[in-house]
Computed example of a mutant assay.
Amino acid sequence: MIATGPRPVAPFSHAVEADGWVFVTGQMPTDPDAPDAPLPPGIEAQTRRVMENLRIVLAGIGLDLEHIIFARIYLTQFERDYAAMNETYQGYFEKGKLPGRTTIGVTGLAVGALVEIDLVVKRPD
């Protein structure tokens, strides 16, 4: 668990590491400083909050977004939000250096979120 990380919405660890591979649990668009506050409105704001929460978790274990190997993104309104989420998401990475990724449309997410992102990360040797 990362002390400064978002409050978990279920029983899980923020990240688990095995042999230099780090599996980061899906993060929600909740505010770590105000976990009971309403979620940010809209997919762009929720994507930004999720990415910032992922940064917090990664920083807590000495890593950053550049160490991501693979991301899984879950969207409750896939057709409506896919393009806008992509636009926001790609801004967190150096041009031409994106991790592998799958995006999945789902019927619902915890806390009524529009987006959730989990990661597979590799610690540098």
Rank of each mutant, 00 (worst) to 15 (best):
I2A: 09
I2N: 12
L54D: 05
S13E: 14
K97S: 13
A3N: 11
Q90I: 11
L75N: 02
I43P: 11
R80Y: 06
I2V: 15
G62T: 04
Q27T: 06
R55W: 05
Q77F: 12
P11T: 13
K122M: 12
A113F: 10
V22G: 00
Y89L: 15
Y74G: 03
D33N: 11
W21A: 04
V50G: 04
D33F: 03
G96Q: 06
Q46V: 08
R48H: 14
I56D: 06
Y92A: 05
M85G: 01
A18R: 12
A3T: 14
E52Y: 02
F23Y: 00
I61G: 01
G105H: 01
I117V: 13
I56P: 04
L75G: 10
D31I: 05
Q77A: 13
G20R: 00
A15M: 02
F78W: 13
I61L: 13
G91Q: 15
R101V: 10
Q77R: 15
T103N: 01
V16D: 04
L119P: 02
W21I: 11
V9K: 05
T76K: 03
A18L: 09
V50Y: 11
Q90N: 09
P11W: 07
T103E: 07
D118M: 06
M85L: 06
M51F: 03
L119T: 09
A34Q: 13
M51T: 06
E17I: 08
I69F: 10
Q27E: 10
I43V: 14
K95E: 14
I69L: 13
Y82A: 15
Q27R: 10
Q27I: 01
Y89V: 03
W21P: 01
T25I: 00
V106M: 04
K122C: 07
E87M: 08
A37I: 00
I117Y: 04
I104Q: 14
L119S: 00
E87F: 10
Q77T: 09
A113G: 07
P6Y: 15
G105F: 01
L65Y: 04
L109A: 03
L54K: 07
A84S: 15
L109C: 05
